[in-house]
Design a protein around this nucleic acid. Structure first.
Length: 348
DNA sequence: TGAATTTGACCAAA
DNA sequence: TTTGGTCAAATTCA
């Protein structure tokens, strides 16, 4: 857990700074777009300020004379995270998330706090009835820790976290919810990034640690083979030949971070959501087995190094594009979290 | 018998 | 006050 803590501090700070940079870039983009509203620009400026203030306060509180705890490395155990700024400040969800998360760890007692980690959502449509036998494996081991009825939703939402959460301090979690409108569509929201090694190793040597999937992309996996199966079954049966449709995700986030340069760096050609008009974004990727397995090593390497940062920083912003995910190229890594694991989710 | 899931309760955010 | 997210005891599964 120490790792987590130290990680947390560092990450928080990095996240804030990264976010600030990101916001500045966004602002830059907006400045070049005549159509961009004043309000939007102003909002960005505000966010930038808030972001930097947070970063500064982190530095002040952790590095000071106190001597010791550097927010950075090494660890010590729990250094208390700085309190997150008042929510009112708009804080970017994103940074708050990370902070919170780590804070939770520090004060484990407060683990029940609602987290808002970086997250990205994928919508998956399962139309086929493929092998029900095996749940689609995204390369990670997930453990269901809860299920809840969501207001306004017909179906309950399932909560999963990495099996290695404790063992490796992997904070990745995901939520799976079936669409009310279209039962064949499942919305999977991932949070945090996998930091565990076992997961990737165990499942597939080929699956490297996953970078957070492209945030804001929603995907539909459609099995060519049609099918009338029950959604639940479908879930379990997500096929190997998949067609993934990505669409813009969180509207809110998108607005703010329609485009995330960071991602670009890693993913060369993922098309950012903002490229298209609002709806534009739907993209179809072919995700066959191979697809997932592929591998962009280069990307992966980089990814590994920054993944953490990205996960938190981008996620918060959710700039999904960011990690772009090269689905097409198929990199499991890139798209690791793609699974429902689960028998548990709908089964009961 | 150990691991995973279920489910009601708790708690913090909104 | 409501709602979403997490915990943890009980239960089920392998």
């Amino acid at each position: 857990m120490e790792n987590c803590n130290m990680h947390g501090e560092k990450m928080s700070l990095i996240n804030e700074l990264a976010q600030g940079r990101e916001l500045a870039r966004q602002l830059q983009i907006h400045l070049n777009v005549p159509s961009s509203s004043h309000g939007t620009r102003e909002s960005l400026v505000q966010k930038i300020i808030v972001s930097y203030e947070k970063a500064l306060s982190m530095l002040n509180s952790s590095s000071p004379a106190s001597g010791g705890e550097q927010q950075l490395p090494t660890g010590h155990a729990a250094i208390r995270m700085i309190e997150s700024p008042p929510p009112s400040l708009n804080g970017s969800p994103h940074s708050e998330d990370s902070d919170r998360e780590f804070k939770d760890q520090d004060n484990k007692e407060s683990s029940r706090k609602r987290k808002t980690l970086p997250r990205w959502t994928q919508q998956i449509r399962v139309t086929s009835g493929i092998g029900l036998e095996g749940p689609l494996d995204d390369g990670f081991s997930w453990r269901k820790y809860g299920q809840k009825d969501i207001l306004g939703a017909k179906y309950p939402r399932g909560y999963y976290r990495c099996t290695y959460r404790n063992a490796q301090c992997c904070l990745a979690t995901k939520q799976v919810q079936r669409s009310d409108e279209d039962p064949t569509v499942f919305e999977i929201t991932y949070r945090g990034r996998h930091t565990c090694t076992q997961a990737s190793t165990s499942t597939t040597s080929a699956h490297p640690p996953p970078p957070p999937p492209p945030p804001q992309n929603s995907m539909d996996i459609v099995d060519p083979q049609q099918n009338q199966q029950q959604p639940q079954d479908l879930l379990l049966a997500i096929p190997q030949g998949l067609t993934v449709v990505t669409e813009g995700l969180d509207a809110g986030d998108q607005e703010l971070f329609p485009y995330n340069p960071l991602n670009h760096n890693y993913v060369g050609n993922f098309s950012p959501p903002f490229m298209g008009p609002a709806t534009s974004g739907t993209q179809y990727f072919s995700a066959s087995e191979q697809g997932f397995g592929g591998g962009s090593q280069g990307f992966q390497g980089v990814e590994c190094e920054i993944s953490e940062i990205l996960s938190s920083s981008t996620s918060a912003t959710n700039s999904p594009a960011a990690l772009g995910f090269p689905f097409g190229q198929a990199d499991q890594n890139l798209y690791p979290n793609f699974s429902f694991d689960g028998p548990g989710f709908f089964s009961s």
